[in-house]
Structures are given as C-alpha cells and as structure tokens.
Amino acid sequence: MEAVIFDMDGVLIDSEPVSKLAFAQAFEVTGLDFTEAIYQKILGRSLRDIELFFSEQYQDTKLAAKIITIREQEFARHYQDHPVSVKPGVYQLLDYLDSQKMKKAVATSAKQSIAEKLLQQSGLFARMDVHCYGSEVTEAKPNPELFIKAASRLNISPEKAYVIEDSQSGVIAANRGGFVPIYIPEEKDEFLNDHPFKYSLFNSLTEFQAALSLKL
C-alpha cells in the first residue's frame, strides 16, 4: 500500500456534531422535524447533493436552499468562536505514515472555501500531500469521483490506497472506485447484512494504526 486518503469531517476533524446541530437549527427555523433517520441519509454527502435530496424530499427547491443556507451560516458561526477539534490519533497516524513514506491526501465533500479554513486552523493542511474538495467534482459520494481525483493527484492506482471514512456513502464510494475502504463510524451504523460492499471496521484511528503497523 502506498497511500491513505482521508475524509475530513468525522475522520480528521470532529465536526460532525457541529454540522448535525447546524442542520437541526436550520430545520427548526424552517419549521421542519429533524430526525436521526434524515441525518443518516445525508451523512457524508456534499451540501450540493444534500440540497438536491431535500428538494426531492420536500418537493420545494426554495425550502431546500434555505435549509442549506442556514446550515452554512450556523456552521461558520460556530468556528468563529470555537477552535477546530481534531479527532484522537490523527497526528500520531500522520507521523507514522510519514515514517513509512506513505502518501497522504484529504478528500472531503465540503466546499474548498470551508474545508481549507478548518484544515489550516487545525494544522492539518500542510500535513497532506494532496487536497480534494467537493466543489471540484460534479458527482458526490457514493460516486467515487472525489477519491479517484485524489488518487490521480497522488499519482497512484486506487488499489494501492486506503480510504478512511466515517459514513456508509463514503465506504460505498471507495468500493466503487477500487480502493481499500477503512470504516470508522461516528456511531454504530451497521450495513445491512446483504450488502455487497467490502471494508475493514475499526473503532478509532489509533486502532487502525496498530493494525497497519502489523502489516508493514
């Protein structure tokens, strides 16, 4: 294996609780009920893709756009007053990958304007060899376009790269792109028993690093 491609939200940065709260606030403002079932359907998807989902769900494009606008405002407001929280084990894993001469990329569904600020504030931007953003691709996860772009920029073939994800849509995208998926879900989020997707399940980045060290 030659590289690790990281999702950002929920893998590198502990931003999923912030995003979830921002969506809850947007739903409250628009008078809708924000449920866990809805959140699981949008987890790991780009805001553009989520907006399309809401447009279909509620048959109202203006309402969908309003939800996304409020969510972005609330999300940005949080980080004006709070530091970026990095997930446990991130820096240690990056140090280990450097020691093994493995390439590193971040491939996030977030827009470049948003993601770069979070990566810069956390000190993670400079630690990556390659950065890919949702605003650079036309197809969102579970389409593998984002990961394929990252592999191309790393100049490696997909089967030589681990993809670390916290969402089912990301794991599916990694499968479809021919990558080696590593699944570290935020919460217990099991695939259905008859799913065709392959992945290795870990509880944390630290656990993944321990397993990786045994293989190298």
Results as ranks from 00 to 15, higher is better:
77 R>G: 00
65 A>Y: 01
96 Y>I: 04
59 Q>I: 02
79 Y>M: 01
88 P>N: 03
89 G>A: 09
78 H>E: 10
97 L>P: 02
76 A>R: 15
64 A>D: 05
93 L>G: 08
69 T>E: 15
72 E>H: 13
57 Q>S: 02
95 D>R: 10
69 T>S: 15
86 V>H: 01
96 Y>M: 09
90 V>T: 03
61 T>Q: 11
73 Q>W: 02
88 P>K: 05
71 R>P: 08
77 R>P: 01
61 T>P: 08
100 Q>M: 12
77 R>K: 14
67 I>H: 00
93 L>I: 07
58 Y>N: 06
60 D>H: 04
88 P>H: 00
85 S>Q: 11
82 H>K: 07
89 G>W: 05
65 A>D: 10
86 V>T: 09
90 V>E: 00
69 T>G: 08
59 Q>N: 12
64 A>I: 01
73 Q>A: 14
63 L>A: 07
73 Q>M: 09
59 Q>M: 03
100 Q>N: 06
79 Y>I: 05
94 L>N: 05
66 K>W: 01
95 D>E: 12
96 Y>D: 06
84 V>E: 00
61 T>W: 05
89 G>V: 05
96 Y>N: 08
57 Q>Y: 13
85 S>L: 07
77 R>C: 02
88 P>S: 05
80 Q>Y: 06
72 E>C: 14
96 Y>V: 01
75 F>I: 10
91 Y>N: 11
64 A>Y: 02
96 Y>A: 11
96 Y>H: 12
84 V>M: 00
80 Q>R: 13
88 P>Y: 04
56 E>M: 05
72 E>L: 14
75 F>C: 04
